[in-house]
Design a protein around this nucleic acid. Structure first.
Lengths: 254, 254
DNA sequence: TTTCTTTGTGTAAAATTTACGCATTGAATT
DNA sequence: AATTCAATGCGTAAATTTTACACAAAGAAA
């Protein structure tokens, strides 16, 4: 395995990495996927390096598939982090010492912890479909509620902040939901997604009118039964129309 | 000079570069700054590498100052180009051969033309203030009308396209103009800037009302005289209010 | 059977955006 | 010196969009 790792790094760009903020929506909250580094209590975003023969987008795709088990994840590049002191936290040496307890002294020489520029992506995934999977440097991968995210390694807290801003900007300018919700969903569920992302409340009647005006939703003949109230209709995105709206943009003005 | 160049590259990131689309506004048109490579008819965007002890933003600033003579240029990172085949045009070898006529055979070995990821910035500058200055690889630097831009080296045409999209998005969501216009300007001049950037026409009366509603402009007691018509008032941005509007965002809905 | 919460639908008021008229200015023309 | 002409300053009515809000119906729980 050590051998494979070195080999991998020989075939990858060394001064460029990428990190992904993976958003899921569960129980009315936005969640992000975090990894805990082996032998430490330090958490970070999933990320990795770009192979010499793959594009940055392909690398992000590959890494996301490895961490979630999903293919065809929605990914958007949002910012590239190029500060000199990106590694200010956790102080290089201290973290390195902890890791060398696990990996052996000198193991990381020439592999990580040089000056690296990182390309930030955010991903939108269907929460229930994800199989959180740690990578070679970490031994735990799990969802965190956005509100509970701890102090992360490197500049990853800043990355999440910027990713969230980018997600909000996207939600205001084109439809979201196809990537975050299951195939069938109710209007209140969709509304809660929008309210969570944009962090504000909407009138449910006006919300429904606006969303339906985009002509991207199809109301099914089924209803969600079981709750102690009137059964709401199920809806589903009409993929072609949804894609058109993403391409042309809609202005979510409410 | 050769020595300095090698030394520079030893102190810079090799796998990351950055390229700037510099927008100016002149005679009712958007212009971009391009460089012609020594001994060729090939043009490219201004760009360069990041020194080990400077951030990406600082590098962009430094490079822009070198190409324009300006300090404190408005810069915004908009996208990072990470395709494997970014250098598809001009085919590496062909260009290299042309350049080696000028620079000597083997000169570029290990300096350029490896796999490089490039961070894209766009800059907004006051056209008249710019002193276009070629860099070490080029012997001409000049403005091109956006419509006349030729086939550029590498993926730089795509970069300009994306930069323009980013500029348009910015113009729709926060005020522009402070960076592109001289200190004092008339309302019709500001309107033409917006019309050029967004590529559409506005009613001058509604345009004025909307812009004044942002509370970022101050009307001066001067007028622009000389034209064969009623003299228009001069305006100027009130910096603090302009900055607030940039931070909070305005929606240019017209 | 009653209660309680949530859903489906429609309409009036408020606010915003759009369209457009007219008198005025100032250089150029006669 | 008077006239012409293109562009400017200012304002209002119409059209459209956004916002606010009420009531009947459904369905599990009490």
């Amino acid at each position: 395995m050590e051998h494979n790792l070195k080999e991998f790094f020989d075939n990858a760009l060394k001064e460029v990495s990428l990190d992904c903020t993976v958003f899921g929506f569960h129980e009315g909250e936005l969640k992000v996927l975090l990894l805990r580094w082996k032998g430490t209590d330090e958490w970070s975003l999933p990320g990795g390096h770009i192979l010499l023969d793959e594009s940055a987008d392909d690398a992000a795709s590959r890494i996301l598939t490895q961490r979630t088990g999903l293919c065809d994840v929605f990914l958007q590049q949002f910012y590239t982090f190029g500060n000199v002191n990106r590694y200010a936290y956790h102080p290089e040496k201290e973290l390195l010492e902890k890791l060398e307890v696990t990996f052996g002294k000198g193991f990381f020489d020439g592999i990580i912890f040089r000056r690296v520029v990182s390309i930030g992506y955010f991903a939108l995934v269907e929460f229930d479909q994800v199989q959180p999977t740690p990578d070679w440097f970490t031994d735990e991968c799990r969802w965190w509620s956005l509100a509970d995210v701890p102090r992360l390694l490197f500049d990853h807290n800043e990355m999440i902040e910027r990713a969230l801003k980018a997600l909000r900007q996207r939600a205001r300018n084109q439809p979201v939901g196809y990537n975050l919700l299951p195939e069938k969903f109710t209007m209140p569920e969709l509304q809660r997604l929008y309210e969570t992302i944009l962090d504000r409340q909407f009138d449910r009647r006006n919300f429904q009118k606006l969303l339906m005006s985009y002509d991207i939703l199809e109301r099914l003949d089924e209803k969600r039964v079981g709750a102690a109230n009137k059964s709401p209709f199920l809806y589903r995105f009409v993929k072609e129309k949804y894609d058109r709206a993403v391409a042309e943009g809609v202005s979510f003005a409410m």
